[in-house]
Amino acid sequence: MGHGYATEAARAVIERAFGLGLPEVYAVVRPGNERSVAVCRRLGMTPLGRMCRWYDVELEAFRLIAPAVVV
């Protein structure tokens, strides 16, 4: 329990998304799934509150904006 695999996998997905030029990444979590909420927090994602925007069900939404690239 709690080996960090979910966080590690999510970090890889985020790095890939930002590497492809996506400006932001969203995560949605079923209310009450505290372990998934903790992963989002560890990743530095911003909580957006509960929304019914995805999958026709109320979910906790999180967003991470790509870091600015300094040249």
Rank of each mutant, 00 (worst) to 15 (best):
P31S: 05
F18A: 08
E8T: 04
R30V: 12
Y55K: 09
A9P: 07
T7Q: 07
A27E: 11
A10F: 02
A27Q: 06
A27D: 00
A68Y: 08
V57I: 13
L48F: 09
E8D: 07
Y5A: 09
Y5S: 03
A17D: 07
D56C: 09
G4S: 01
R50F: 02
A12P: 04
A6T: 00
A68I: 15
F18Y: 02
M1N: 05
H3K: 00
A61Y: 02
L48Y: 08
Y55C: 10
L43A: 13
D56K: 12
M51S: 12
A38I: 10
L22V: 07
V70T: 15
R16E: 10
A38E: 15
R42V: 07
L22Y: 03
I65D: 09
P23C: 06
V70L: 13
L59P: 07
D56A: 12
A38Q: 13
T46Q: 13
T7H: 03
R11V: 01
V37M: 12
C52V: 01
A9S: 14
R63S: 07
E34F: 12
V57F: 03
A12D: 07
L64W: 08
I14N: 06
G4M: 00
F62W: 00
A12L: 08
V29A: 03
V39H: 14
D56G: 10
V57T: 14
R16G: 04
F18T: 00
L43P: 05
M51H: 15
L22M: 13
R63H: 00
R42M: 07
L43V: 08
I65Q: 08
M1E: 10
A6P: 02
A38H: 13
V37H: 09
L43F: 13
L59K: 07
R16K: 11
E34D: 15
A10C: 09
E8H: 05
G44N: 01
L22E: 13
L22K: 08
V13I: 13
G19V: 05
P67N: 11
S36N: 12
W54L: 14
E8R: 01
A27Y: 03
L43Q: 06
E8I: 02
V25M: 13
H3Y: 01
W54V: 15
A6I: 02
G44P: 05
E24K: 10
A68K: 14
D56H: 05
M45D: 09
A10K: 03
A38Y: 10
A61Q: 04
V69G: 09
M1F: 07
P67K: 06
